[in-house]
Write a protein that binds this DNA or RNA. Structure first.
Length: 559
RNA sequence: GCGCCUGUAGCUCAGUUGGAUAGAGCAACGGACUUCUAAUCCGUAGGUCGCAGGUUCGAGUCCUGCCGGGCGCGCCA
């Protein structure tokens, strides 16, 4: 049996059809159906503005339309107790109390799979995120991107998409040479040379660490070696070493990737030249002023973009065109790029590139994650990779914990700016919203522990005991209703690419539980009621675990 | 100058894509532990949703203008 929300949706989808001639009865009708959980209980368990939405199209009074839809409603499972048509034409649905217990049975049966669904039907999705240059450690902004991409990938997977996570390594280009030289200079310094370290090189303390490591491994054999001869050695060492550190930090943060894609491989396979040739053949690349240009204005960009400079060297953007061609050639139906918002000016040309490569613009979704303001006691902390004056992601995680950091990143929309105050995050560590959620889980686990100690039979082997009807308190119905919303929350997170919906859902759900817990006893005098409530508790625990897993936060059994 | 993001309670942020009486956490104040975890709960207080117009049955949400904050605007990556 389907969840109440889904049943209502299907019922409405059927009931609305007769209002239209048969040639208009397509999927567009279903997309109009929205089921709202009203804030006011007097407005029912679910409400829809369907009649209001249709009134313009049908040019009729919305209340009349609502009445007509109501007459068409068939409710074979008898989930609807009554329907009220209210205000200008809202339809408010009151669910038969007994129907809610189906939700618990559903959760019980699906268990770990509850919340998963098959919206994606196996479509291939790639989420590319972090992709920080391997020239320095990850900072807090990368952390936000990492959390966002990681959770989005988890959400897509839960929605039945075939997801791959990818990290694009910018290991070509001149910043790598700069990195190699930075290591070279620090290395020579360690060997006692006096070096005037260039302003525009990587001055961070971490480069000294890399140099010490390098010295340990390579010894002194590069002492005063001519820079040009040995630069590749230094570049490779520094790049590999820093990338290894990045991988380690991400691992600590609970973020993993399926593919680490090296930009260098594009050059090695001549992919950039091939891509440009193809684009030239299709008329999207032309020559002018000694350079080669991509005609991005044809697809709405404000000006055309250079892909090969007058000196014959291709631009970063050219590599990115080849990279995205490579992505689509790998067969992804949808590619999601997660970028720092400071790259937003780059979006129009990339979308233009996607179209020039023969794909739909919507096949690439770019999520811009707004920058993070790192604060300490309300004061901004300077962040600059070159100067080396910054707090690394690793330091933040060590200071406030991975779960708390994740939660702070995830409880805002990606397009809103984020103030991350280390002192606040630490100071509030006991009142941190993440602990509020985790605590609920620990409490639930504790209930089952105590039940076991007291010898209360917790036979959860049967999907849905008949006594669930004993759950008659309004709070219990409210809880169950909310439990039933998880799949919808997950689906909408995927649809709108908004991971923040999950933590907000968790918070609301857990708030209901804490309140319920303080007012009522799960393990009470009456055996049957206790049993019913244990089933509710079990369902709740399942939902918490599943939702926490989606955001990559631990569900501790004890706190 | 142009473009993107943003402005909601003292602070940090939600607000189901246009719905009914705008919410949460922190901070403040007052209560609740002999009970399944008080990292919890209950209550009080806190708002001209930046400002001004417009669109319509209905606007925090959409359109225009203005004001403020952030970011970007290279044959750099």
């Amino acid at each position: 049996m389907a969840l109440i929300r889904n049943q209502l949706f299907d019922i409405l989808a059927e009931a609305v059809k007769p209002l239209f001639p048969s040639d208009e009865q397509d999927g567009s009708l279903e997309s109009l159906i929205e089921l709202d959980v009203p804030k006011q209980t007097q407005h029912g368990d679910y409400a829809t503005n369907l009649a209001l939405a249709l009134s313009r199209r049908l040019k009729r009074n919305p209340r009349e339309i609502a009445k007509q839809i109501e007459q068409q409603i068939k409710d074979p499972n008898n989930v609807i107790e009554r329907i009220e048509i209210a205000g200008p034409g809202f339809m408010n649905f009151f669910i038969r109390p007994g129907a809610w217990t189906e939700v618990i049975a559903e959760i019980f049966q699906q268990s770990e799979a509850y919340g998963r669904q098959d919206l994606g039907q196996g479509k291939k999705v790639q989420v590319e995120f972090v992709s920080a240059n391997p020239t320095g450690p990850l900072h807090i902004g990368h952390g936000r991107g990492a959390a966002t991409g990681d959770v989005l990938a988890r959400i897509f997977a839960a929605c039945g998409y075939d997801v791959e996570r990818e990290y694009y390594i910018n290991d070509a280009g001149k910043q790598m040479d700069t990195l190699g030289r930075s290591l070279y200079y620090r290395y020579q310094e360690l060997l006692g040379e006096r070096i005037e370290f260039p302003e525009d090189h990587y001055r961070g303390e971490y480069m000294r660490d890399v140099a010490r490591e390098f010295l340990k491994e390579a010894g002194e054999r590069y002492h005063n070696a001519p820079l040009d001869d040995v630069l590749p050695v230094f570049t490779k060492y520094a790049g590999d070493h820093i990338l290894a550190g990045i991988r380690e930090d991400l691992e600590v943060f609970g973020v993993g990737f399926d593919i680490w894609f090296s930009e260098r491989t594009l050059h090695e396979q001549d992919a950039i030249r091939k891509t440009l040739e193809a684009l030239e053949a299709s008329g999207h690349v032309y020559e002018g002023e000694g350079a080669k240009w991509f005609r991005s204005t044809q697809f709405g960009d404000e000006k055309d973009r250079v892909v090969v400079r007058a000196n014959g060297i291709s631009t970063y953007f050219a590599a990115d065109l080849a990279y995205h061609k490579n992505k689509f050639d790998r067969g992804y139906d949808l590619v999601v790029d997660i970028w720092g918002a400071d790259h937003h000016g780059y979006v129009p040309r990339m979308l233009a590139g996607v179209e020039a490569l023969g794909r739909k613009r919507s096949d690439l979704q770019v999520i811009l994650v707004q920058l993070v303001n790192l604060l300490r006691a309300g004061k901004p902390v300077a962040m600059s990779t070159r100067s080396g004056e910054f707090v690394t992601l690793r330091e933040v995680i060590d200071e406030v914990g991975a779960d708390a950091a994740r939660y702070i990143f995830l409880t805002r929309r990606t397009d809103s700016h984020l103030d991350f105050d280390l002192d606040v995050a630490k100071m509030q560590s006991n009142d941190n919203p993440v602990y509020y959620v985790q605590y609920a889980h620990a409490r639930l686990c504790s209930i089952f522990e105590v039940a076991k100690e007291r010898g209360v039979s917790v036979d959860l082997s049967v999907a849905a005991p008949p006594e669930l009807g004993l759950l008659q308190l309004p709070e219990e119905r409210h809880l169950v209703k909310m439990l039933g919303e998880l799949p919808w929350v997950v689906a909408s997170s995927a649809q709108f690419l908004e991971p923040h919906r999950i933590p907000y859902y968790l918070h609301d759900l857990v708030s209901l539980f804490h309140s319920y817990y303080n007012r009522n006893r799960i393990l009470g005098e009456e055996a049957e009621l206790t049993r019913a409530r244990l089933y509710l508790a079990h369902a709740l625990r399942t939902v918490l675990q599943n939702a926490l897993r989606l955001i990559g936060v631990k569900a501790p059994e004890k706190m």
